[in-house]
Structure formats: C-alpha cells, structure tokens
Amino acid sequence: MLEMARDLLSWAFILGGGFFLIVGGIGLLRLPDFFTRLHAAGIIDTMGAELMLAGFVLQAGFSLVTVKLLLIVLFIMFTSPTAAHALAKAALHGGYKPRLATGGDDDRGSD
C-alpha cells in the first residue's frame, strides 16, 4: 500500500516535471525578448528539473543514488540563478536594451 502511494506520488512528480519542462520550452520560443525568455528558462531550471529529480528520488528509495540525485538538485539550485544573473548582466553590458512596457525610460546605473 505504502509502496503504491510512493509510486503514484513519484509518477505525479515526474509527469508534473515534464509538463513544466515543456511549458518552459514553449515560453522560450513564445516570449518576445531575451530578458523575458530568461524567466521561461527559470521555469525549466527550478520547477521542471527539480520536480522531475524529486520523482527520481522517490523511485530510487534510500541509497547512494539518492545522495547523488540530491547533490544534482542542490547544484542546479545554486548554479542556475548564478548563470541567469551572469547572462542578464552580460547582455545588459553588451548593449542589449530590454523591451519595457512603461516606455523608454530605464533608470540604469552607470555603465
């Protein structure tokens, strides 16, 4: 019984993760400019990948495999914001102007 509940939960996590991955992919294609696409990539890195890995953790039970999966989760959680931040900063310094809703006034600091 407990086994089945764990299985169901893990499949729900894996399928949910797959759904958010595809949503992130669609967003990456659909959103209008680079900075908005950054948010779609955020969905892939946080919700999609973590849910799927959580499902794998439930499937694996408690062993060395779990430790490795948790290390991957931790690593993605720490590196994905760093990479996103580095990308945004590099794009802004590289002269890419974000498309803004409020019009042209972006109070950007010294460059």
């Binding site: 894996i14 399928l15 993760g17 797959g18 759904f19 991955l21 595809i22 992130g24 992919g25 669609i26 990456l28 294609l29 892939i44 999609g48 799927m52 499902g55």
Partner: peptide, 11 residues
Amino acid sequence: AILAIIVTMLL
C-alpha cells in the same frame, strides 16, 4: 519522462 525531455530539447 524521456519523451517530455526530448520535446523540450527540440523546442
């Protein structure tokens, strides 16, 4: 899961 991953990869 692999199917979902590959679809996303194509996008």
